[in-house]
Design a binder for these strands. Structure first.
Lengths: 211, 211
DNA sequence: GATGCTATTGAGTGTGCGACCAATAAGCAA
DNA sequence: TTGCTTATTGGTCGCACACTCAATAGCATC
């Protein structure tokens, strides 16, 4: 008779239920942080009992790692999707760098800071972070190599160029959780400057393009 | 008569006791992480009761912030001490950058990652992080300005040059908790390259010097 | 419609945390 | 020596967490 109690059980296909759990966990990871990905929290969001989450993830650490992996993969796809043939590599790179400037990118920075810190205590998560790192690096590296192939980019070490861009992005994202004093324009432009320098592009090539 | 029980009370000067607590908390913060700075943990290290820590720090968050501040200040003093007059700014800067390459620096990177992440949930800590950030920036900026004054460095924006160096250091330190694949030499040299570029120094000027 | 598999629940265990507070004793001052 | 201030103790409370496991019920299969 109590109003808020839902006694009806909904039995789902294990694969679908698992995906549902991972999605909910990833959402929590993005909005609240990885330490908020708990059995109780995820169960509450899905209106099930905590024990059910344990059934799919015998160790909570596995769920946290999965949540991070899912969230990071999703953000990578939004930030740096596969390049359609009609986009020139330089244009695609410019779009990517433009997306890393907005406040929207802070969410991603927060997630990475979170994961890199929590990796200190969670070996399973640490492995997942390493995996995601190589995924992000790999996708940017592919774009760089594509640009070299078309002749737009010039570098004798695509890996070094790629990693240098990522290091700068990591450095700029480090402050996503703290109120940062207004930064000089030269600092805000560091990703573009670095990319243009390492890829042999004339200054200004990677600035925001229309559309 | 029980062997492990210490019933004797040691009453100390409040200022001394407080300093003792902060020191112990800073040590835990550096070695184990800020989330291990708990009333119980610090009390155990000092062989006192948790209630005593509460007496000096009514809120545990205050202790965590203090622990970070103490640890960060100590590390800054080791890493970038005040420049003695007999040291040329370029030589002092070269020493600083050399110290940021060793594995010893990983401890500092870990502390900063830790603090920047935990800032998300702890407003008191967040303020302390902002304070420490300006302290680190201030000290490096002073060194840069000194070099400009002596004519060794050339830049029209000392702040931008300073922050760019720090951003690169932050970016490289982001991986302190994860096993990082061997990085290209160009990446490892980024701090030196950035400093030389932004300060108008000939390449190689800031490489490791003898002594 | 009956049966069997298993997804899901409900209840309970143990741990570590911050916070709170009355009782106690150390050491200084009168 | 006596008395007072307060640093320090010991104990307790409530909360949130992961983890365990027997009981239950949804649903596909026969």
């Amino acid at each position: 008779m109590s109003s808020s109690v839902q006694r009806k059980r909904i039995r789902k296909d294990p694969a679908a239920r698992r995906a549902e759990i991972v999605d909910a966990a990833a959402a929590v990871a993005l909005t609240e942080g990885l330490e908020c990905v708990t059995l109780r929290r995820v169960a509450e969001d899905l209106a099930v009992r905590p024990g059910l989450i344990s059934h799919y993830f015998p160790s909570a650490e596995g769920l946290v790692a999965e949540a991070f992996g899912s969230a990071a993969t999703g953000e990578l796809d939004r930030l740096l999707p596969a390049r359609p043939p009609e986009d020139a590599p330089s244009r695609h790179l410019a779009r990517f760098l433009a997306r890393t400037s907005g406040e929207e990118y802070d969410v991603i920075s927060r997630l990475w800071i979170n994961a890199r810190h929590l990796s200190r205590y969670r070996p399973v998560l640490r492995d997942r972070v390493a995996l995601q790192e190589s995924a992000w690096r790999g996708r940017l590296e592919t774009l760089v190599r594509d640009g070299v192939d078309t002749g737009e980019f010039v570098t004798d070490d695509p890996v070094a160029a790629t990693v240098q861009i990522l290091v700068v992005l990591d450095g700029l994202g480090a402050h996503a959780n703290t109120a940062t004093p207004e930064r000089p324009a030269a600092v805000l432009r560091m990703p573009i400057t670095t990319a243009e320098r390492e890829l042999g592009l004339p200054p200004g090539t990677l600035d925001r393009t229309t559309g």
